[in-house]
Amino acid sequence: MSNLRPLPLIQRVFAALVLMVLLAGCTTATPPDSVLAVPAPARKYAAIVVDARTGKQLFEVSSTAQRYPASLTKMMTLYLLFEALETGRVTKETQIPVSDHAASQPPTKLRFRRGESIDVDSAIRAIVVKSANDVAVAVGEYLGGSEEQFAAMMTSKARQLGMTSTVFRNASGLPDDDQHTTARDMAVLGMALRQRFPQQFHYFSESDFMFRGRLVRGHNDMLGRVRGVDGIKTGYIRASGFNIVTSYNADGRNLIVVVMGADSARQRNDHVEALIQRSLSPSVDGAKTRLMFAEQ
């Protein structure tokens, strides 16, 4: 463990406890050392692994503690956009205008000019791949009339899905002290997206897309790193640390893995990979806890 930087005592104790939980009942190879590094600082870290087919919780640490969602927020923005597609309110060719307010959002964004618009299909890709804040806000304004009204719609939908501890204040996940969620709620949302919109879920596996003749690359490095990972969304603001919701779907297993509060994207991704490896071990029983979902 000499390659790990020294941690304050409370962080070392917390990290050791997490490692003990990870290793309990595990007969496969020991997860990488990054498992120790990710949980620090404890005030930001939270994680959960759920078997998406049965709802069984396989692992959790602080999964019901309040955390900032960052760009995981955009998962709900997309949920409502997928609903609009399903009901026929929009088509993939519908043009969404980009207001001055939307265009003024800080990066990451596509940088629109006054009066420009984006079609729904490109908007979905921009939000998934680029995590474009300007596009997320434009979608929110189009569907909700204003971003504030759309955020209220997002929170209402969260309650319908059983996300009991989530409040949305914007469509993008940009910093807002009153916007919060939990790892458990993000797992609920990740599963709801796959179950409700299987025909749209392929968007979350895309790592780049063409927009106006330019290749736009994403930054979800879990795609292509672990066989079976097919999405879905990363997020970061300074207050949250590095967040991710990851879907694993291979060999008859379907997992949703949520990690929040990592110190870097690399730590976060290493931790997710270790949790997937652990959860696929035949010796892992998991907690006898079933996540309950409201009617969608």
Rank of each mutant, 00 (worst) to 15 (best):
T30V: 15
T30P: 10
P31K: 04
P31H: 01
P31N: 01
P32C: 13
P32M: 12
P32A: 10
D33C: 13
D33N: 15
S34W: 08
V35S: 02
V35E: 11
L36G: 01
L36K: 11
V38Y: 01
P41Y: 07
P41A: 03
A42D: 06
A42W: 01
A42K: 13
K44G: 04
K44D: 02
A46G: 14
A46E: 04
A46S: 14
A46Q: 02
A47K: 04
A47H: 11
A47W: 01
A47I: 03
A47G: 06
I48Y: 00
V50L: 06
V50Q: 12
D51H: 11
D51M: 02
A52S: 14
A52N: 02
R53L: 14
T54G: 05
T54S: 12
T54Q: 06
G55A: 09
G55M: 08
K56H: 13
K56C: 11
K56M: 08
K56F: 10
K56L: 09
Q57A: 09
Q57R: 15
Q57N: 14
L58A: 10
E60K: 14
E60M: 13
E60H: 15
E60T: 14
V61R: 05
S63I: 03
T64A: 06
T64G: 10
T64F: 01
A65F: 09
Q66N: 15
R67A: 05
R67N: 08
R67F: 00
R67V: 12
Y68C: 05
Y68V: 05
Y68P: 00
P69H: 00
A70H: 03
A70D: 10
A70E: 02
L72C: 08
T73D: 07
K74F: 02
M75P: 04
M76P: 09
T77E: 08
T77D: 00
L78W: 04
L78M: 12
Y79Q: 11
E83I: 06
E83Y: 02
A84P: 01
L85Q: 00
E86N: 13
E86D: 14
E86K: 13
T87M: 06
G88F: 04
R89I: 12
R89A: 09
R89S: 12
V90Y: 04
V90R: 04
V90F: 09
V90W: 07
T91I: 07
T91V: 12
K92W: 05
K92P: 09
K92E: 14
E93C: 08
E93R: 15
T94Q: 00
Q95M: 15
Q95D: 01
Q95K: 15
Q95V: 12
I96C: 07
I96G: 02
P97N: 06
P97A: 01
S99A: 02
D100L: 11
H101Q: 11
H101C: 12
A102C: 10
A102W: 05
A102M: 00
A103F: 02
A103Q: 06
Q105S: 06
Q105A: 03
P106N: 07
P106D: 08
T108W: 06
T108K: 00
K109P: 00
L110K: 01
L110M: 13
R111T: 13
R111G: 04
R111F: 14
F112K: 06
F112Q: 08
R113C: 07
G115W: 04
G115T: 03
G115D: 08
S117H: 09
I118W: 09
